[in-house]
Design a binder for these strands. Sequence first.
RNA 1: GCAGGGGUGGCGGAGCCUGGUCAAACGCGCAAGGCUUAGGACCUUGUUCCCUAGGGAUGCGAGAGUUCAAAUCUCUCCCCCUGCACCA
Length: 962
Amino acid sequence: MLDYKSMQEKWQKAWADARLFEVEPNEKRGIMVFAAFPYVNSPPHMGHLRTFCTPDVYARYLRTRGTNVLYPFGFHATGTPVIGYAKRIANNDPDLLESLRTFHVADEDIKRMVDPHYIVDYFIKQQEAEFRKVGNGVDWRRKFISIEPLYSKMVEWQFQKLKEKGYLVQGTHPVGWCTNEDNAVGQHDTMHDVQPDIEEVTAIKFKDKDSDAYFICATYRPETLYGVTNLFVNESVEYVVAEINGVQCYVSKDTAFRFSYLFDTKVKGDITAAELLKKVAINPITNEEVPILPGYFVKADKGTGVVMSVPSHAPFDYVALERLKASGYPVPKMEYRKLIELKFPDAKKGLGSTLKPDEFSGSTGDAVHHEIPALAYLEFLRMNPDVDDESVELATKLVYREEARYGVMLVGEYAGKDEPEARDKIKDDLVKSGDAMLMYELANDEPVICRCGTKAIVAIVKNQWFINYGDKKWKEQVHAMFSKMKIYPEKYRHTFEMLIDWIDLRAMERAQGLGTRFPFNPEHIIESLSDSTIYMMFYTFDYILRANDVKPQQLAPHFFDYIISGEGDAATVSKETGIEESVITRCKESLDYWYTNTSSHSAPDLIPNHYLMYMFNHVALLPEKFWPKQIVANGMVNYEGEKMSKSLGNIVPAGDAVGKYGADQVRFIEVAGAELDSDTEFSTNSLNGVNSRIEYLLSQVIEVIKAENGNELKGVDFWMYSRLNSKIKKATSSMDGLMFKGAYDEIFYASIGELKKYKEMGGRNGLVVTDYLSAVIKMLSPIMPHIAEELWHLLGNSTLAATERWPETDEGMLNMELEESFGIVDSTVEDVNRAMELTGKMEANKGKKAKSVKVILAEQWKTEAYNMLVEGKEIGEIIASMQDKAGKDKAAKYLQGFKNRKEATQQVLATQQSLFNAFSESSDYLKKKFGCEVEVEKEQDSKSARAQRALPSKPSIEVVWS
RNA sequence: GCAGGGGUGGCGGAGCCUGGUCAAACGCGCAAGGCUUAGGACCUUGUUCCCUAGGGAUGCGAGAGUUCAAAUCUCUCCCCCUGCACCA
């Protein structure tokens, strides 16, 4: 067993000493391969390794193909998470502390993590150390953090350009808001990490008949305005008169407070529910007068505290009126208008058929009163209107859902239209005519609580800067570029295309967090995804700046204009900035060389955000030669059959995994354990399989260096060479397409099998095995770089395997006929085993031993006729061309058999003679397999009754029992 | 709700775009046997049902259609997953 740890360190040092990964532009074709830089609020775990090892394997592969490859690395620290992290440390958050201990963070370090910058430094150090340990060949000279001053200068340049080009716009935007901290609240800022779910609601104005004031009713269903019978206010709620956007309104006191964050709102004075109840309101769409009635269910903090009542379609309204009547309240006579008809597509659908089993446990009944849909749904759920508020809730949901899906308007301007369409049009009309306004509300079922303990609401942020990704022309350009890009796996192409169309305004400034100050509002910083869309460019010249002690303030916009777009000239820029002209020129050359050809790697979760912005920003800011060429998205890593997650407590730190399982084992299973697009399974099982094969390879290397060379080449040797070259060919094309599993199934797994088979079939030529192993080890080097070095040197080489070239396919050694012949030998072994088992069970043969096995090879004319059938020739035609090689009846029958069974699909290359040779050469092997004598016969020479059953790729078998 | 993706064996997962080579690659699991001091290592064989010397039947979420022929194309329905913006 190898000592993996010291072996890994040995070779990592050898690579470092040879400066293999510190690359500069040269005359070769260059490519920069990079992974999306990681966020530094946690130590890396096994799952991360896949995303960072995949580009390394790819980079190492490309190097073996003669490409000059740069694999740089950087770190992302912008935004609020690190700050939140520091706060949690200060509060001794138990979950966080426990997770840090899992990752072996010392108490001493945890204490100092109250400082966000300490967190950043700590995790950068740790992440770098662990990515080194796993053998990634990174040019670490180019490392940077997204919060360093030099970097910020590039981001400033970027946003100035975006503004110049008209891609920055100002506007309003609804956000979750904490009124205590006066700050936007996102998922990270709430208790239990709830995402504030903001919903647009239509607020309809009902004029007070006797004044200029309006009742404001919030509704999701403006189309039901045609059926309003009354308004509800709650007698236990406090109301106010407020001036909202210049209009006198009646709303709950709570609403006035929330509206002050949405609209221009001034509270004029209190008004009691009792006073409101005396009023009469006017329906803006029908101009009908509607009374105000008490509604027990109306809430002060939802909607506006005033509810429009549509008893025909709203179960709550229906029930409230029923209860009111029952209580003896003088409810005027009113008309329950049916506004929407359900039109089901087929007989299987009906009222209530969208009810899901987990929504309702009771039994349902018949809906009778279809003229009042709200009642019909209540009947369907068999609810008791006096007590069963839960059913009313569910009935409301059902009406809403089914009318949206199957409903057709019966009344109003949009009669005959589907309900959702009518709803939107009516809403737009009302807003346009000033009879309604749009408000926002949190739609979460539970209240959203800020971490400070205050209930969050919705606020509209004014004069907020956005990047306008909705720009049509911009989108077109991105589409055009995208169509030329390579996407791995290709299945994401469609997703990308949809998303390019979908992305719209993106708010890009924040009040809090680490990062670059926004040039047009220095109070704010640039949002943390927006500041990381062209950062890869920085790798190509940042270390040149640092090496020459360039200061941030020297990085004037003209510097970037020159090196990126070639605007101006180096001398002028040098004069302006004080940066030496040669340094500027080197930056430009480096950028030109590395940035014209790139491959970007990450997990697919970055597609709808980072990658979209990556493409848009490149198109907007950089010349076409620097546009992205290739995006690679890799799947996740499961551990022992489960997703790695905090809740399962099965997160394995990267360092632990490498220490415990070995760097190459981890690399292999994570990168080649599954194809790029699917999740890979890290299990003891897969690890054992990999380890045992590594051991086997090692044993073969040791054996072959002791073996004798120079025997004459036999069939099996040619077979081995053919297999090797087929393997190289297949693996090369798989690697080129980033199909690492396909490639390494061939290189690693299949090779072990072939080495064993070769020996079983009597192969013993040391030279052949050495050639074979050398090629396999070279191909193994990208994914198992340490072990490949070890084996490579054991074989007697003194060069580094990492610098060896990938083997070329020697077409002259390919012999598909031979490979097929030996393949048929193998499949025949399986058939014989089966035949022996079956015949052994027969009465006559019980307890006996097989004496011999006859393998009878089909006559050559069968193969020829069969191949003609595959070519699509008619049977008659084939028989005619057969002449007298076989009896015509025999040939016809044989061919018809194939045709009927639809088996004539692939040509058979092996001739009878080549099969005969393969079987003859394998006779020792076969004897050992069967444990009895083996006779190989040609059909035309055989006396066996079974001889004529022989088919081209399937010899006839006869087991002879003693 | 909107948008995107998907439903194949005990499981993971190919194949579906370019219909016939598909009882279904490859892997895992499971079963029997072998090897072995032992084994989570390795090697055989099997793993829908029936037949039992390489034969047949059924089958790819449900239903219908197109076709000589459908997991593969069309339509309808059912179910599942992911994203929806201030969050990296």
